[in-house]
Amino acid sequence: MRHTISVLVENKFGVLSRISGLFSGRGFNIESLSVGETIDPAVSLMTIVTSGDDRIVEQITKQLNKLIDAIKVIDFINIDHVEREMILVKIAPKKNDKTEVLKLAEIFRGRIVDSGASTFTVQITGNESKIQAFIELIKPYGIKEFVRTGKVAIAREGIKKTK
């Protein structure tokens, strides 16, 4: 089962390696990770996506909570939430395919953020399935370069129901 976990941490040197060490020391994989400062510059928020059965994820969240520098840990599995991820794709379509690619980007509400002699760079924001669908569709047209930010998540207001 895939889990999105948010960890509020002290914004200090070495904290990231304490967190990643918890995963690597137990042979757990991090699928995606994004880190950024919060409104309080002394605090950072990490969003980690990982997979494992209930026992593994229970251990992960407990171990994260145990870290002295971790202030708060939230596993979104049972919390209604919004997830977003952004990708930038540099596409190099054949001359004839250019309009097709631009149309596809439009359907996915992508924005063209750069353009070269033979390439477009498209920015797509969305949840995982949307991004995955776009990648699958665009693949045949020739992806030159591809970067993704990793997931960020935030709970929906008012309806934090337990599934």
Binding site: F13, G14, S17, R18, G21, G25, I68
Partner: peptide, 14 residues
């Protein structure tokens, strides 16, 4: 040594 002992201390400081 802070890096080396990270997994075997409760916490460490530089």
């Amino acid at each position: 040594i802070v890096g080396i002992t990270r997994p075997c201390t409760k916490h460490n400081y530089l």
